[in-house]
Write a protein that binds this DNA or RNA. Structure first.
Lengths: 239, 239
DNA sequence: ACCTGAACACCGTTCAAGT
DNA sequence: ACCTGAACACCGTTCAAGT
């Protein structure tokens, strides 16, 4: 593993064909290309959606190939005919979650980025265990469409390639890390006092960390501009 | 889970007694409190060290209670007499790793913090799967001693409690997230070309992200100072 | 081509029984 | 008090056999 030279989050968006098989080309080679052919038995969309539901209810650990098969009304072996492995299935679920993120198009670049990262946090938070999976498997599960939008926003803001890579990596790992670690101000059915304190605190903590990150990104952006300010000495040490 | 009101990383350092049992008080209640009593059979230190070795060799997934017992030369049941669960054992291993971090005492506050986070990354990187575990189980595995040092550094730098919480959380989740996701410029036994590119790129990416975070922290620090600058309007919205 | 039934090779955890 | 041997209740994955 880790054989490619460029492992940055931004660069990963260009390698979307690593899932193994892929959703297009699901139609058998000899089938008629005109009508719908998927009506026979299980469709991949059904499997992914059922898996996502189970994860939302019981977390990634609660997602079992047997339980999934039972919900689909088929046998274990039938599920394995459509999904090669649980890992590949979770990659599809992750992609499904990322696709739910709306594109933010109001405000400054940092406001837009922040809004989208908050959306990611909210979606991911509702699927316990997915944040950790996405984090660990970032190489394979990086969101293609979402990443393209973020890269475009950062490019428009004036970031160079190095800056984009660093900002995206920092954002991605902060958000997934925070969500993986039980950050959950949404499922707040506790006592009134606890809700007021915990939920607000955690949401504040999360947003404050995001603000710190984006503020740091803004600093590096200003430093990389041609007309650098006074205190923008660079310390390129340790080669 | 998540019942406490304050889940910040900084606050977690004060709750070190969640492991269940704990290493002191290991001596049976009726034993003589004078001589060493641990010489009978397995010691906890032995178990944790053997577990750490297996994790270093084969990762967290490669650590099996059976394999651990075999290496210790005992039976499965014997191991379970000392460690209540694999989860608790991994918490002890995590604590062991954190204790290896040296305290940085040179340079500015951000240089010291950066140095210690680089150390954490290096130690954690050598134990595959631990970064993810530490991240997911931050509530229970947060490093007590390491956290105290970091909090002290940030306090000396002038951060208030909220700032410390946010900075520590952002740092912790960035580092563990990055390490969990295969960040590994250390095990570089690839071709010359690949090593030059991948290793340098990843290490650079990691450090650049750290710099962004710390630069952002510096900005918030300056904004919270009494003599705030011109552009330091505050937007305490959403209550 | 798709699905069933049954198995394989593991897990973590428990527990009577020994010494 | 500590350890052994054996089991329990699961996993993910595979595969002959059916239709």
């Amino acid at each position: 593993m880790a054989e490619t030279a460029d492992d940055s989050i931004a660069a990963m968006a260009t390698r979307s064909d690593a899932v193994g098989g892929g959703r297009p080309a699901r139609v058998p080679a000899g089938a008629a290309a005109s009508a719908e052919v998927v009506s026979t038995g299980l469709s991949d969309r059904q499997i992914v959606e059922a898996a996502r539901q189970i994860v939302a209810e019981s977390g990634v650990d609660g997602l079992t190939m047997r339980r999934l098969s039972a919900r689909l009304g088929v046998t274990l072996g039938a599920t394995y005919r459509h999904v090669p492995t649980k890992h590949a299935l979770l990659l599809l679920v992750a992609e499904d979650l990322y696709d739910q993120i709306a594109v933010a198009d109001r405000g400054t670049w940092s406001e837009r980025v922040k809004q989208m990262m908050l959306d990611v946090a909210e979606v991911v938070r509702r699927h316990p265990g997915m944040a950790s999976f996405m984090n660990v498997n970032a190489r394979q599960s990086v969101p293609v469409k979402l990443n393209r939008v973020l890269v475009a926003i950062l490019q428009d803001a004036g970031f160079n390639r190095e800056g984009i890579d660093a900002v995206m990596a920092a954002l991605f790992f902060y958000v997934t890390g925070m969500c993986a670690s039980g950050f959950d101000p949404g499922a707040s059915r506790r006592s009134a006092a606890a809700r007021r304190a915990a939920v607000a605190d955690l949401q504040d903590l999360f947003e404050r960390g995001l603000d710190i990150l984006l503020a740091g990104a803004e600093v590096t952006l200003e430093q990389s501009r041609p007309q650098a300010r006074s205190g923008a000495r660079r310390e390129r040490s340790r080669t």
